[in-house]
């Protein structure tokens, strides 16, 4: 496989690469190295007293039962969001992919949530589910169901899963739809001539053919639920009640930004970095082989 581009000028390729490399260094490697450096220090917020403590911060973090609790919350939360988002988005995509009246309108409407900032989305959900001032929250309570996400950890977790997923569904929907539309009509027609039912068609033809999309979305959604759900959690629950919605990301924020415990927060960031790198590596190592790239 010879894929070499030919450049007449020796400098040009490097010049073309330079912006990307610069961005990568400034915004990826520099902060990451700072986090690594900070994670082996004990330092006051103003940087007036600094002690090199080797791996003490990691030891403290990993032996902290609250950290383990945050790991559990994160696992439950991320899996719930990923599964929920992908199932619903796929369902929507399959539904709108058919020839139905107003399909274009549905598609447009389904994309709208993606345009909202997470914090704004969270406030909207608060207005719906707040136990005293929310329309649905109030309704649930007057119907006899004791809904209170400010006190019930399961309710809170459910709420942030829904609020986080809502936005992401639009994004996934778009990718699934594009995936479905790129499936050659000939294949679908062949299956139909063979008498495949709608389910069989989806199960044996469409789903395998969009597996690259599914695989990509799986990774993206996991990373999303790890990192991009901060706004929703911060606006809705502040990690509570108790610690029931304190994810790893939120804990790192609290320890670093509120408690100003830079060393431990940096250690948590580094661990987070390792966890997600591991997830991505595992996915590529074991799952990509099963994915059919069209």
């Amino acid at each position: 496989m010879q894929r070499r581009a030919i450049f007449n000028n020796r400098l040009l390729p490097y010049l073309l690469l330079a912006p990307q490399v610069a961005i990568t260094i400034i915004f990826f490697f520099w902060p990451a190295s700072q986090a690594l450096y900070q994670s082996v220090l004990r330092q006051d917020p103003f940087g007036l007293r600094t002690t090199f403590v080797y791996l003490e911060n990691f030891q403290t973090v990993l032996s902290d039962p609250l950290y383990i609790e945050a790991v559990q919350v994160t696992v439950v939360f991320s899996i719930s969001v990923t599964v929920f988002v992908m199932v619903v988005a796929l369902l929507f995509a399959v539904m709108t992919d058919r020839q139905i009246r107003g399909a274009q309108t549905y598609k447009t409407l389904l994309l709208w949530p993606y345009a909202l900032a997470p914090a704004v989305a969270a406030v909207l959900w608060m207005f719906i589910f707040h136990p005293s001032i929310g329309i649905l929250g109030k309704g649930l309570n007057s119907a006899g169901f004791k809904w209170d996400y400010q006190l019930n950890g399961i309710h809170a977790l459910l709420l942030i899963v829904i609020a986080s997923s809502w936005k992401q569904i639009a994004h996934n929907f778009l990718f699934f739809l594009a995936g479905l539309q790129s499936v050659p009509t000939a294949v679908v027609e062949a299956a139909m001539i063979d008498g495949a039912s709608a389910w069989r068609l989806f199960r044996s033809v469409l789903f395998p053919l969009i597996s690259p999309t599914t695989f990509y979305l799986l990774t993206v959604n996991l990373v999303f639920s790890f990192f991009d759900t901060f706004g929703v959690i911060h606006a809705l629950t502040h990690g509570g009640p108790g610690r029931s919605t304190t994810t790893l990301m939120y804990k790192a924020y609290m320890d670093g930004y509120v408690s100003l415990n830079l060393g431990q927060s940096a250690a948590q960031s580094v661990i987070l970095m390792l966890i997600v790198s591991a997830i991505v590596w595992l996915q590529f190592r074991y799952m990509e082989g099963k994915v059919h790239y069209a």
Binding site: F29, Q34, F230, G256, S265, S269, M273
Partner: peptide
């Protein structure tokens, strides 16, 4: 793989204290 890893890196580093503070707005309730 490298691309995804980079995405992960930047995300993981967002809360790093000396780096850029988290861009998310505070609760706008």
């Amino acid at each position: 793989f490298i691309f995804v890893l980079l995405a992960v890196l930047i995300a993981a580093c967002a809360p790093a204290p000396t780096a850029v503070p988290p861009t998310q707005a505070p609760a706008v309730e």
